[in-house]
Nucleic acid binder design. Sequence first.
DNA 1: GACAATATAGACTGATCTGTCTATTTTTAT
DNA 2: ATAAAAATAGACAGATCAGTCTATATTGTC
Lengths: 187, 187
Amino acid sequence: MASAKRDHLIDTALRLFGRDGYHAVGIDRVIAEAGVARMTLYNHFKSKDELILAVLHRRDERFRNSFMRQVERAAPDPKGRILATFDALDTWFASDDFTGCMFINAAAEYSDKNDPIHRTAREHKDLVVDYLRDLASKAGAADPDGLAAGLALLTEGAIVLAHVAGHKDAARKAKKAAEVLIRDAGL
Amino acid sequence: MASAKRDHLIDTALRLFGRDGYHAVGIDRVIAEAGVARMTLYNHFKSKDELILAVLHRRDERFRNSFMRQVERAAPDPKGRILATFDALDTWFASDDFTGCMFINAAAEYSDKNDPIHRTAREHKDLVVDYLRDLASKAGAADPDGLAAGLALLTEGAIVLAHVAGHKDAARKAKKAAEVLIRDAGL
DNA sequence: GACAATATAGACTGATCTGTCTATTTTTAT
DNA sequence: ATAAAAATAGACAGATCAGTCTATATTGTC
């Protein structure tokens, strides 16, 4: 299953889909940029949709191994980690190749809720909420579900305003609002 | 400029682009669904991109004449109107044809910040923030900019979680968080 | 070195894409 | 009624789309 070519194809497709979208990027461009033969792609993936799914899974995996780890490195305590979440967002938004969230963008292009691509996007967002709920719970919030919901709203809102509206300070604004919610939760 | 055919084309395209996305919907499908000749479309719009821009402008206009008016009808005072914003969101999310925000989705497919389509999406989001800032200011918030930013984050976050994650209660959760921010702003 | 697995280039299908052109018909306004 | 404007159907161009097939070449493994 795992192979160097397959890996390289996923990485290339991730970059292209992330920048230009899923429908706008054709198979031809993926294989050209990857420097790989057409049949190599189709030997590793049954279809373009399968490639997109592999891309989203890799993105999700990177989120866990990069974003989450960054938060965990930044602070030892749950409350500190909640706040560090918004610092990590800020870093992400500031990167040159920031083109929004691949899952939000995927759901935009595949609006059918039963489409595996949309479903994968949903699963990722549920993971984010679960992560925040876990932190809220460990931090001893009065209502962990409520706090997690508020934090998730601020997180997703920040991604949208940073990408769509170009608000460079979206993460910092979100952090300030998060501090209010955290205080309200008794922390 | 204005004509019945042109109007009908914009409405049809709005429905199709809104449901299936911008790249996924071709000119052929727009004219077929609109029951209009090919050249009729190209006589009214120079290109597909021009049609998309017309669609976004109509969507923005409908937002002002529908969403904003709904909020203004719901409450006479600024604070009440801020809260009514989230009720209006809730109604929107509950509609059968809810497929997310056309501006967020447009920015997803046209990530180049200088693309007129992306720019139009940005302008719409700025309008939303301006509207919330006006309400926050009139309500007498200590820091209208800060409150407006927080409310905008909750608004956009709710749209994303309702669409991508299918969270039916996103608007109500956002309203609860908004109440906390409003209280913190001294209202 | 031999064998099997993997990758290669590129032709090919059939569909779809945006946009142009023409020749004819319908609508509108005077 | 007549002239001008708008809409029509449909062919056409040239590009691109996803996906299949084949025949050759390059790998990696024992």
